[in-house]
């Protein structure tokens, strides 16, 4: 690791101020991505601003049909929650037990790793991301590979998700890293069917062709023959774009099968 100044502010305002004054600051939430990056000297922030000392950023609360999850809520705590079983299931499959004991929702989505799990839920569950400055619709939050709609210095405070009538998350883990090669969350809210996909593209997205097919006929077979364009899909040692597209279809089908 390169040298940096470590700060643990007590408020969002203090955190934002530290960031504004830093030559090249970085927020630290759970650290599950940032710390390995620092260890390998792949990043060299002048200041690391730990958000864990700020009150009120963690915990889950239910408000009507919206589940409010604080940005610093650990994956393990979401995994143990009951309001949205599919979200708990998703959180329980992130990384490993140690990652889930440290990693947070806010840290995960702010990083917009194409292979992270949470973005599938943000896409599928009509999420709204609340920051220290504004609210961002889930569908507009992820903008590209490791890119989000967050402005410089903006801090995620919480995310709220719609509590669906039913939902299921299917994940095909990378055999080495256990990140998602592809992850698909299928959710039914009132009459709408949402299919959130992570792992396949540069960032999470909704698979609208699959949603249309499933809206018409919510059966596993309904997705057969739906073309999934893999033109922009990721390809690496473990999975080609074509295989990822195939997995999107298979996982969607399996998620639907669990819901009927």
């Amino acid at each position: 690791m390169y040298a940096f100044n470590y700060h643990k502010p007590a408020s969002l305002e203090e955190a934002a101020e530290l960031m504004a004054n830093a030559d090249d600051g970085a927020y630290l939430s759970g650290g599950m991505t940032l710390i390995p990056t620092l260890k390998q000297r792949l990043a060299s922030p002048s200041d690391v601003i730990d958000l864990s000392g700020i009150e009120g950023l963690s915990g889950l609360s239910l408000d009507g049909n919206r589940l409010h999850v604080g940005a610093m809520t650990r994956h393990a705590d979401v995994a143990a929650s009951t309001a949205i079983p599919a979200l708990a299931d998703l959180a329980g499959r992130i990384g490993d037990a140690h990652v889930r004991n440290r990693g947070t929702l806010g840290g995960s989505i702010a990083n917009s790793d194409p292979a992270a799990d949470y973005p599938a839920a943000v896409a599928a569950l009509d999420a709204t991301v609340h920051t220290n400055k504004r609210s961002i619709a889930g569908g507009e939050f992820f903008t590209g590979l490791f890119e989000t709609a967050l402005a410089e210095g903006e801090i995620v405070k919480s995310v709220d998700f719609c509590v669906p009538d039913s939902a299921a998350y299917e994940k095909f883990p990378n055999p080495a890293s256990r990140y998602a090669v592809v992850g698909v969350m299928v959710a039914r809210c009132a009459d709408a069917v949402c299919v959130g996909v992570t792992g396949a593209g540069a960032c999470a997205f909704r698979a609208t062709a699959l949603e249309e097919a499933l809206s018409a006929d919510f059966t596993p077979g309904a997705t057969d023959g739906v073309a999934i364009d893999d033109g922009d899909f990721n390809a690496d040692l473990h999975a080609s774009a074509e295989y990822r597209a195939h997995l999107v279809a298979v996982l969607t089908k399996r998620a639907v099968a669990r819901l009927i």
Partner: peptide
């Protein structure tokens, strides 16, 4: 909680 101590800063 079980954590990986190689991925926790002393300050944390």
């Amino acid at each position: 909680d079980a954590v990986k101590s190689c991925t926790v800063l002393a300050g944390q």
